[in-house]
């Protein structure tokens, strides 16, 4: 073989193999069994994380000079939901947070009720799954304060957050999220009602949004309307514990 021919053959071999592999990998991405194999990395990561770090390890807190000038709004900036918009127009005076499910005392909290509970302020970094980060100062009621009022039953394993923002254009598929009790009782996990010393803006999740530091942005549910304690979320929506989880994102978002 002459050199140019050999080189041409080699180049074609490399390009051809590359395209075949790329197509093959795309086929694998769409197969159920392979996706399950790949997803096994998630539980490996979760267990490894919990092996090396304490479940109560604290997320880094920052100083005022680190604050992002404008805290980016991602996903929904104004829920396409008539009921929500009526409440928003009335400064959420009629909004009540119901906390129920597997609890001893189901309760509804007004904003005044929540603000009467002990509060916490923290400057933390919000890490979006897309790759960007923003730093904000959050003030809110630690979730454990709310839970101590409703008293979860022993059977309860997860806290579900049901939100007002529809993810489908026709106004359906309301956003929801879930966390386990370790995160629910973590000192930095809170229902935030203030951002950067001001009432939480609508674009960032008014009247309250979840802060579950040590996990990615899609866990930080905005526009929370209802909280429910459950022992399993298999029967809720897509069964994966959250809106984005139902579309293939990891339930454990510590990575």
């Amino acid at each position: 073989m002459h050199m140019p021919n050999r080189r041409k053959f080699f180049n074609r071999l490399v390009a051809g193999t590359g395209m075949a592999l790329l197509t093959g990998c795309d086929k694998l991405s769409n197969s159920k069994w392979f996706t399950e194999v790949l997803s096994s990395g998630e539980s490996l990561s979760k267990h490894a994380h919990h092996l090396i770090a304490n479940r109560k390890s604290m997320a880094q807190e920052f100083s005022e000079k680190d604050l992002s000038p404008d805290f980016r709004s991602n996903g929904t900036a104004l829920p396409n939901n008539a009921e929500y918009q009526v409440m928003a127009n009335n400064a959420f005076e009629d909004w009540k947070l119901t906390v129920g499910g597997l609890v001893v005392h189901a309760q509804a909290f007004t904003m005044a009720d929540l603000q009467a509970l002990p509060s916490r302020t923290q400057i933390t970094r919000h890490d979006c799954v897309e790759g960007w980060s923003a730093i904000g100062k959050w003030t809110g009621v630690p979730l454990h304060e709310v839970l101590s009022h409703v008293k979860p039953l022993k059977r309860a394993r997860y806290v579900m957050f049901y939100c007002a923002d529809p993810m489908a254009a026709d106004g359906t598929k309301l956003y929801y999220e879930s966390i386990d009790l370790d995160d629910a009782y973590h000192p930095q996990t809170m229902l935030a009602y203030q951002l950067n010393d001001k009432t939480l803006p609508i674009k960032n999740g008014a009247p309250i949004r979840l802060r579950v530091e040590r996990q990615l942005g899609y866990k930080q549910a905005k526009y929370i309307m209802r909280i429910e304690l459950v022992d399993t979320f298999d029967h809720i929506a897509g069964g994966k514990g959250g809106y984005w989880e139902d579309s293939g994102y990891e339930w454990y978002a510590g990575i």
Binding site: A53, M58, A59, Q60, E61, D127, E213, Q215, G254
Partner: peptide
């Protein structure tokens, strides 16, 4: 880049 691993030793990043 892992938010959980950041808490291993706050500030290491």
């Amino acid at each position: 880049m892992s938010p959980f691993l950041n808490s291993l030793l706050p500030g290491w990043v």
